[in-house]
Design a protein around this nucleic acid. Structure first.
Lengths: 229, 229
DNA sequence: CGATTCCATAAAGATTTCATAAAGACGAAA
DNA sequence: TTTCGTCTTTATGAAATCTTTATGGAATCG
């Protein structure tokens, strides 16, 4: 279940705010309304919105100055609404940092599509993919393993093997399974070089590799990665 | 001295292409023209543009399918031009991944402002336009790389490659990923010329290129840009 | 307990991958 | 067209990695 995206609507006409709210809420956005520039900026700062819809014609302040002020501290997308379809206004708004410009009366499905496009752009990948045990940590997105925050240099095969063990933390992985996963289905059942690699990895990650605490041997079966507090 | 931003214009009407070229070149963009979808995609993959302008009505293929195909491998901004001001088309284009939609006849200063807005956004995601590591610094807004405040002369491809590494500082980038990002989806899996370029860049940025501290090799995997204090 | 199988490690050989130079191809600009 | 800068390809030796072999120690089982 995803959390709803919040949109701040800054417009002095109650009618327009109402139409926008209904439209946006029907598309599963959370809407925060503001009827003047001052309140709009406050809401933008406190409601943590994913987008701002701003009417350029406000009673208390020039809408362009609102764009300017917002851009001093945030880069969330701003879509401008205006009754004026003047080239000059469009250029000014966009160059001040607005992301899009629509003229009233606007088409609601076009507005929604432009909102989706703007939000899509800001939601670029930033997901971290990290698993840790003891003082060991693996980061799949950057493909780096650290021990005590210090990076450990691993060859490609060593990394693949360690990543496989991490992903199956606590489970016993049989020799056959590991060999098939890393060396492909046509790999021989010879687990000799698996031992060589486990040995290499242990040298690099275990404090005492005569008594390994991370990768334990399950004699006759395979290996297991242990979760260490 | 900053390198010009490149824009690929895909339109079958020579007249429109000419007008666009003149307009864009007057604003200091480098323009690459294509008169059909096939050539357009090729140019988008090889010319390393910062933006694509796409006419939705092309002779050889549906423009929507071009958006779709481009979006399988690149996230550079796409601005759609169309004679049809239909809500349906706008929504479809934006949801397929286009960044903006303008109807012909378009206003050239509005188009330029929308281009600036789109390019600005792509050069922003790292929050700052400048990233540095050690005595190296990259400025995305001016496309300039400096070492000890001294500018380093880079070819376009070298810049793109270095910028990609900077943007993913600390992450291991696989050969395949780098090749797709820089040379497009049709690039071969041959990483030989990637090595050549890495070699060139190292000559320019590393103090001792027998022992590189900025760009390290992850044998069998790819390369990584390191953060140096 | 033996005997047997399984495991850990070192080290040598085989293979893959990498760095670099240099030559050819290509395209943009004069 | 020619020139120049850049990109692509090819070739070569070096480096890193993987695989195999050998040896002795540990675990397992009758």
């Amino acid at each position: 279940m995803s959390v709803k995206n919040t949109i701040v609507v800054i417009d002095d006409e109650a009618q327009i705010r109402k139409v926008l709210s209904i439209t946006l809420e029907a598309s599963d956005y959370k809407v925060v309304e503001a009827d003047c520039a001052k309140d709009g900026i406050l809401q933008a700062a406190t409601a943590h919105p994913q987008l701002v819809i701003l009417d350029i014609g406000l009673p208390d302040r020039d809408g362009f100055s609102v764009i300017k002020e917002l851009r001093t501290w945030t880069s969330i997308p701003i879509i401008i609404l205006s009754v004026r379809n003047s080239e000059e206004d469009i250029v000014k708004a966009l160059d001040l940092g607005a992301d899009d410009y629509l003229t009233k009366p606007f088409n609601s499905s076009e507005l929604l599509a432009r909102i989706r496009a703007s939000i899509r752009r800001t939601q670029q990948p930033s997901e971290e993919n990290v698993i840790s045990t003891g003082d060991l940590k693996i980061d799949y997105s950057s493909r780096v393993v650290t021990k005590n925050k210090k990076e450990i240099k691993l060859t490609n095969t060593e990394y693949l093997l360690l990543a496989l063990l991490f992903k199956n933390m606590g489970k016993v992985l049989t020799h056959g399974f590991i060999l098939r996963e890393i060396w492909g289905p046509s790999s021989t059942e010879n687990s000799q070089y698996l031992r060589v690699f486990i040995g290499q990895i242990r040298k690099k990650i275990e404090d005492d590799h005569a008594d390994p605490k991370y990768i334990t041997t399950e004699s006759g079966v395979g290996y297991r990665m242990r979760f260490v507090k």
